[in-house]
């Protein structure tokens, strides 16, 4: 464990909590892409299958359980509890355009052709593109509430911090996980456009982020 990875996990947890609290307190999921949240729940489900078979540390197990629980709670709030506020008419990204290439690639490029390894690889590749429906929804509506942009900021920051963690681990313990690194870089690149808008618009106290 290093400070970059810890900061990354905290940033990830903060993002998930920001979104969950926003939906719960406003009793609405307007402007939130349910599809992205389902994809994130799928990412955690396929990545943490070793939750009961492999024990890494208390921290690792606790965080996996927390991420699974919070992501499913978010999906539940969107599609069940506050489903009347869900903007399905704006959440129209074709997730099959993400799932098909990700599934194909995880069968082609993996460390071992075993169910657990292929599902882990699937979760890594899927996480890189899971935010697409949400970013697409924002471009479609042309705006995002500031809370939603803070959620996206911490979500994007988490994998950027993981990249720093991978650099650190490469130099200190010669560890590198190429699939995670390549996918993590792609994932962070997808956030760059948002980061630009976030720093130039939201942090200038403009409240909502309206797209040009």
């Amino acid at each position: 464990m290093n400070v970059f990875r810890l900061a990354g996990d905290v940033s990830h947890l903060v993002a998930i909590i920001i979104l969950l609290l926003k939906i719960w307190r406003s009793k609405s999921c307007a402007g939130i892409s349910g599809k992205s949240q389902v994809l994130f729940a799928l990412v955690f489900t396929t990545r943490y299958l070793d939750l009961f078979t492999v024990f890494i540390s208390v921290y690792n197990t606790v965080m996996k359980v927390v991420f699974l629980a919070l992501s499913y709670a978010t999906v539940y709030l969107i599609y069940m509890r506050f489903r009347n506020s869900y903007n399905s008419e704006n959440d129209t990204f074709r997730v099959e355009f993400l799932l098909v290439p990700v599934i194909g690639l995880s069968f082609l490029e993996n460390y071992a052709f075993t169910p657990l390894e292929i599902l882990w690889t699937f979760s890594i590749f899927l996480e890189a593109v899971a935010i697409m429906p949400q970013l697409f929804m924002i471009t479609k509506t042309g705006e995002a509430e500031s809370i939603t942009t803070h959620y996206l900021f911490f979500l994007g920051l988490y994998r950027a911090l993981y990249i720093a963690n991978w650099v650190w681990r490469y130099h200190t313990e010669s560890f590198y996980d190429l699939i995670a690194i390549v996918s993590g870089v792609v994932q962070t690149i997808f956030f760059c456009d948002f980061f630009y808008l976030y720093f130039t618009r939201v942090l200038r106290g403009r409240g909502k982020m309206t797209l040009p």
Binding site: S57, N60, M63, K64, F67, F175, A180
Partner: peptide
């Protein structure tokens, strides 16, 4: 060094 993909990361 060989790629060791030990799954200790979240």
């Amino acid at each position: 060094q060989e790629e060791n993909n030990m799954k200790d990361e979240l």
